[in-house]
Design a protein around this nucleic acid. Sequence first.
DNA 1: CACATCAATAATGTGCACATTTATTCTTTG
DNA 2: CAAAGAATAAATGTGCACATTATTGATGTG
Lengths: 247, 247
Amino acid sequence: MTVKRPKPIRSGKGRVDLDAAIYAEISRAILHGQLQAGTKLPEHKLAELFDVSRERIRKVLHRLAAERRLEVIPNRGTFVPRPSGDDVRVIYQAHRVFEAGIIELLVRTMDDSIMARLDAHLAAERDAARRGDRAESVRLSGAFHLLLVDALGNSELSRFSRELLSRSSVMVSVYEPAQSSVCAVDEHGALVDALRQRDLTQALALSREHYDHIEQRLKLDQAVPRHQDFAAVFRPVAVTERRSRSR
Amino acid sequence: MTVKRPKPIRSGKGRVDLDAAIYAEISRAILHGQLQAGTKLPEHKLAELFDVSRERIRKVLHRLAAERRLEVIPNRGTFVPRPSGDDVRVIYQAHRVFEAGIIELLVRTMDDSIMARLDAHLAAERDAARRGDRAESVRLSGAFHLLLVDALGNSELSRFSRELLSRSSVMVSVYEPAQSSVCAVDEHGALVDALRQRDLTQALALSREHYDHIEQRLKLDQAVPRHQDFAAVFRPVAVTERRSRSR
DNA sequence: CACATCAATAATGTGCACATTTATTCTTTG
DNA sequence: CAAAGAATAAATGTGCACATTATTGATGTG
């Protein structure tokens, strides 16, 4: 009955957005390859960074772990997964199988509006490549495959595609040599051409070979992951309210 | 040396298994269609049922929600999802797209050992159908599609396949009339035949039509979900230790 | 000096108390 | 009597204290 605690901040509604914002921020950092594989994400440090309680961070980290974006080792902590050679094989095979299914449907159901979006995206990719903007090229290269699946308008397929892309992004940042481009724009262009002609066999082959190329390149050099100061890669989350700083 | 820790009573290792056991038990109940759509799963009741703390239940429920197996409505509770007609469309399209990709790879990489397992499974399905064991038929029918994806030996693909199956299981238990069989064994047999002959076009068509049939049948009758006493469907989880009953 | 042991420290895991929100019942009033 | 509102009850959300486990560093021993 007696109030022991100083008055807590009210309005529990903003908290949901807070969870989502932190989740999105960490996801973004992983997807953009800003978090090196093997990096530990200590709950206390993250709580301080985002200025929230540790339990809130815990919840987000465990959710990311359930989606295989992070790895929780009991009593040890949460880490950015350090993909093994076998992980690379599994993820890229999943990419190939998955995109094969997408292409099989796209070839049958595609319309002009989808093709227009793909063409526009190819133009953006070529532009980034011409400017030599590697970060943007990497981002657009992944976005190309998301564009394919999003064209189907199926939230389940889009969600799984994003999980896969999130995992392969870490692999790229680990293994990929810095100077090479991730996805050759030409290969994306050829795939779009095959789709336009509704050539299933050709489109399947191109997609398969495309992922083969990426996987092959990854396995060429085995970079050694270093330790990392992760604090610099996170951007402040936009929240309506902050946690009280009572200590 | 003085004993600093007076009570090394419980090992922390059992807790992980406990989480997994509860997670598996709720997952099983959903997959087997024992939990009616719309059923609320109150944290306090579940905690009492499994004889664990409420926070432990919360963690499991939120994990299941992250996988879309359950639905958490903030400040309201956790529910077995009540799929809309649009959800049915999305899930079964995902099934079709996904299995198309699997088939495209299976046709190229399948070997005798895989075919033998598929044949054995078909025999089991026919046997269950002959015996009129509907529950077993439903279970085997779902297991058939898992067998296809598991044949690829890819954990990512298997995981996603199970998530999809979990969601469609709820839909079947909601919409499906009790007397009809879920998957015609004949359709599974025809698909296996096409795989054996490595006939990609035929296998793709059969798989697609198969899911079309299931989805079509679901939409025929719109059953009204009733409330349910969920306690009866859970089996006790096998744990090495129980929580103290101090009250 | 290498190595094992053990204390000290830091990080993760968990139950609990309490706040907050939602649902229900009861009361009041036009 | 019905409907609105207030009081009550019940369920979910959250921060915190403390237990447990891992890591680090110190220390002694062969």
